[in-house]
Design a protein around this nucleic acid. Structure first.
Lengths: 348, 348
DNA sequence: TTTTAGCACTCTCCTTGCCCAAGTGCTATC
DNA sequence: GATAGCACTTGGGCAAGGAGAGTGCTAAAA
């Protein structure tokens, strides 16, 4: 059984119309409705024939006999590929986004605002994640004694991210010990990748273990306390706009599971990193999220890497219902990704 | 019309029974149900009489004629006051909370975990807020040049909180300028309250304006860039467990507004600071939240200040439905407040 | 050969009518 | 003062029936 005309212009037009109508109304769309709204005066019967073909091709399905047709993931996929060329951002969105992000030079702040503005311009949740990234090189460390056995470690990386961590040590170090240790690290390891610093530091500590070296003892203590944990996965994950989902046609339980999942930020982070490839530059639209996360049936991920020059500094995305304004959202994500490069590029 | 026996032992018992039944079932409770479950074999008719009195007193209301009675805010208030004495935490909660918070020495981390564990043990959202507090004194500043005109400012306070901020300056300062400026601030102002540092710095800059002082020029630039913004309201607000609310009997729109409100963290912060008095030590239960925030009709705030010794370092709270397990939640909040003092007290 | 019109059929949703369970207030009685 | 009885109210559940929308198929028109 060949599929004649499955991607002919008429089929495409009708499929597009079905997807768009379904997106805006949320109800299965029937041949008659479509015939009325379509400019070319095709009769319902004709449309029915085409629809039957599209259903055979896996683009449409029926909730039950004698309801209208509903687009499948495959149809959304096709639709998105179709429109992805002619995407221009609306002036209103552009203004809102620019105004929100203008003048931001801090990555954290940029990401936070991004998640917020994405939740405003889309009908999904806005997500933004910062990457530790390869440039996670040591710039400066500082230790401050707070109280008995308590030390605050501050680690600044080359890329301008600050990690701070209060530690409880087994032995009490006084501030001059701490200063000596900090100086040692700053002088020896400035510019090193942090995980390398840790490894090398460990090596040196082991090596000197036998000797009574006050400095090495301090370093060991600090090392064990986790002073250099700055190479661990970034915790800067911003998720906003969960309220957008509450209007959805999910039932209570589904909705609760969904919200719960979104509150587990690590899962959201995993999702993004699973789908957003460093090398790929463009906006990516992932349809059929339920394969990775069952509770996200009927949800879509529209995301892009946030890069500065060639380097990937994070990811930004919208997670929203399959029934969403794709053009709108895709252009917004794309525009913000460009702004990211523009505003944070260090050579400007 | 006097209210005879309005707070007599029988009335109290019946009111308590009504509140508890309503909390667990969620349905208006009628005289017959109550009569069956009540140990003392009071007949429905008797209970009806008492209920009528309680309704007159403003403790009960009916959704419609011939439905059961539903407790009013006043009834919850009375109920909470009643049980507030005999509160002992359940071993399960105690274990969960201890395990989650044990070993935490970092205020931020404590607060984050607190909001999480509160959302687990209650049927509401867990909220935890850190206070800049009076002890917001300068410990150490550090400036790092990142790129053209871009400087990272790191401010560490005595209480161990780290504020970092990427700034874009009008003039480019090189790293040695920055070091000089940082040294100046560290040597002159260590231990000062940060807002005082700002004021004094401003004074000195103004005073020296006429002269060509390289240091002062740098300081002015940094000052204008907001290097010492660490005295601004804390942004460490943790809200978790919104999913808990989704199971609620709110309608869609109400629910959405509610979630939206909870996502505006400043509003949540305002709410807490409005109701949690520094001087008051105990857990506070605020019933009738809708007066402050209309979308929070049928919600309750159960909170306590988080203090270390005499000093208030933050607030922690549960915001949940009026229909919640008060005893459970109150004891949990109280227990965490105690743990806060115990774990973060610097003299231990 | 492609498009259209017509027709019988299917399914959901809404309305209507009905009954039942639960609850109330009031009055009379223990 | 507490209880029992009774008439009345109200919302929920259920079945029946009609309206509306949509489908597939066949035959006629372009």
């Amino acid at each position: 059984m060949p599929n004649p005309g499955q991607i002919g212009p008429r089929e495409r037009e009708i499929l597009t119309a079905i997807v768009e109508t379904y997106i805006s109304t949320g109800e299965p769309v029937g041949s008659r409705t479509l015939s009325r709204q379509n400019k070319d005066g095709l009769s319902p019967a004709t449309i029915r024939n085409v629809m039957a073909d599209l259903a055979d091709g896996g683009f449409l399905e029926q909730p039950h006999t004698s309801a209208g047709r509903v687009p499948t993931s495959q149809a959304y996929r096709y639709y998105v590929d179709q429109i992805s060329g002619r995407a221009t951002i609306s002036p209103a969105d552009q203004t809102l986004i620019s105004d929100t992000l203008q003048g931001t030079v801090d990555v954290q702040e940029f990401l936070e605002r991004t998640s917020h503005v994405l939740s405003l311009v889309s009908s999904g949740v806005g997500v933004a994640i910062g990457n530790a990234g390869p440039k996670n090189a040591l710039e400066h460390v500082y230790f401050s004694r707070q109280a008995n056995n308590r030390v605050l470690a501050v680690v600044v990386t080359k890329s301008g991210v600050v990690h701070d961590r209060m530690m409880r040590l087994e032995r009490d170090l006084d501030q001059s010990d701490l200063n000596t240790a900090a100086n040692y690290i700053n002088e020896n390891f400035r510019g090193w990748i942090i995980s390398n610093v840790k490894a090398e530091l460990r090596r040196r500590i082991e090596q000197e273990r036998s000797e009574y070296d006050r400095l090495m003892k301090s370093l060991e203590e600090l090392y064990k306390g986790g002073a250099l944990a700055a190479d661990e996965p970034a915790k800067n994950i911003f998720v906003e706009g969960v309220a957008n989902l509450v209007g959805n046609d999910q039932d209570r339980e589904r909705l609760r599971d969904l919200v719960k999942t979104l509150e587990e930020k690590e899962r959201v982070a995993d999702l993004l990193s699973a789908y957003l490839d460093t090398r790929q530059e463009a906006v990516r639209v992932v349809i059929g999220l339920e394969e990775a996360v069952p509770e996200m049936r009927n949800f879509v991920l529209i995301g892009a890497p946030a890069r500065v020059g060639e380097e990937m500094r994070g990811s930004l995305a919208v997670i929203g219902p399959t029934r969403m304004d794709y053009q709108h959202t895709i252009t917004a994500v794309s525009y913000i990704a460009q702004l990211f490069d523009k505003l944070l590029n260090e050579n400007t």
